[in-house]
Design a protein around this nucleic acid. Structure first.
Lengths: 242, 242
DNA sequence: CGGGAAGTTGAAGCCAGTCAAGATTTGTGG
DNA sequence: CCACAAATCTTGACTGGCTTCAACTTCCCG
């Protein structure tokens, strides 16, 4: 049974901006159902023009591009609250693929209703653009990391960022959070080989900064980690939820 | 004397979508003037919240992030028609800096009027989101390149992309286009050292694929270049102009 | 329990970074 | 318009971080 937007468990979290009753009702009309997928299921394919758009309610996934030679670049990890399919909605074509890494529950929206935001609800349209701008911002950071930082720095950066995102969602306990990805996923996100990723993680373990095993990420010294990763620890500001 | 939007020289180019007379008039109100800057002038700084937004009318520039350790990542090159400051307009803060590499002329828009697009002109608001989505798309490509491709592949990719963009703007003659950047700029865009960038360019020269000197980029074999760079040569589709 | 996926570790090689020095172009003041 | 300085480009030699190859271990799940 699909949850009503009024009762959305995500909306309560302090990370997300308040939404008026009217807007919630507006979203309710837009929502056509929920999708439950198993781990390792493709959700959207690069180049596709999906009739449906999603918001991640529960579970984790990743966005990636696969080159014709088989190499894969992971662009980002998908957390609850993330909007999926903006490029399909706006450009008519996804520039990357999205897949579920764990089991996931997704809110499903009808793409044909997309235009209504712009026509009838400028605030929500603005929020949508806001999300696109943030995504651009994050990709810029990732590009700078992959382009300029060493393997140790990049790994520290990535781990710090994941931890911060999880923390903002209230998913951290005892400096530990669920991070059910493969080492290969992180390697592909940072442009490193799997072997070197493994050795770099070992180094962070030996330095007593962070350890990641059995899908659990534990942070021992966030400040030191942030320092190595050249990242500032400013609390992420509130963001709109779609 | 500032050009009126009605007479905008860019708008005539086939790359850009048609705009209704009403919309052009709408833009006209939004435009507050023109800015002429010299080469090597900063236009927007990372972290700043500029009251003004721009569209490049003439000249070339680049977007970049500078890390605290001094390393620089070039995110993209700015061509005529590019909108500058979307992040400032939407997020209230730029995630990267923008600077002029040649002398540039920029249309200046008032940021405080920004919200009016969403309120009064949903088509233009949609176009804005479109631009943000395309930017995200391009950054994804760049990330995949820097993360997964060798120096030769990455360089071929970058050169091909620049050439395609210039071509779409009608800036190519005799398979040659103006590309008045430094080798360091391209190196910083691809995460390579200057020395290796230089040697890679020499290799492309020796292979008789492309040569770049005196700010002029000449392409001998675009197909081969695109093949090495793993990029497809589909004509870029029309895009909205702001 | 057996087999496959994921993680771990060592050894060898190479792509790209760093260092260094000279050539060429660009900019500037007299 | 020349002369000198600064920036950019170029090339060679050396170094090293990361990749590749290969084998072994551990963890699951049927």
């Amino acid at each position: 049974m699909a949850t009503k937007c009024t009762n959305c468990p995500l909306r309560r979290r302090s990370l997300f901006t308040e939404m008026s009753k009217d807007d919630v009702a507006f979203m309710e009309k837009f929502k056509v159902g929920e999708l439950v997928v198993e781990a390792n299921t493709p959700i959207l394919m690069e180049g596709s023009n999906s009739p449906q758009l999603y918001t991640a309610l529960h579970g984790l996934g990743l966005r990636h591009k696969t080159l014709s030679n088989g190499d894969r670049q992971v662009l980002n990890f998908v957390f609850p609250g993330d909007f999926i399919g903006l490029q399909a909605g706006i450009l008519g074509e996804m520039g990357h693929s999205v897949e579920a890494s764990t089991g996931m529950t997704l809110c499903v929206f009808d793409r044909s209703e997309f235009w209504n935001f712009f026509k009838h609800n400028p605030e929500r349209a603005f929020d949508l653009t806001w999300l696109a701008a943030v995504e651009e911002h994050l990709l810029g950071d990732a590009l700078a990391t992959v382009g300029q930082r060493s393997a140790l720095e990049a790994t520290a950066w990535a781990i710090t960022r994941v931890y911060q995102r999880a923390d903002a969602l209230g998913l951290v306990r005892n400096q530990t959070t669920r991070f059910p990805f493969k080492q290969k996923d992180l390697a592909d996100a940072l442009g490193l080989s799997l072997v070197h990723m493994n050795k770099t993680l070992k180094k962070l373990r030996d330095l007593q900064l962070a350890s990641w095993s059995n899908g659990e990420l534990h942070i021992s010294d966030l400040n030191k980690l942030a320092e190595i990763g050249v990242i500032d620890l400013a609390k992420p500001s509130q963001r709109p939820l779609f």
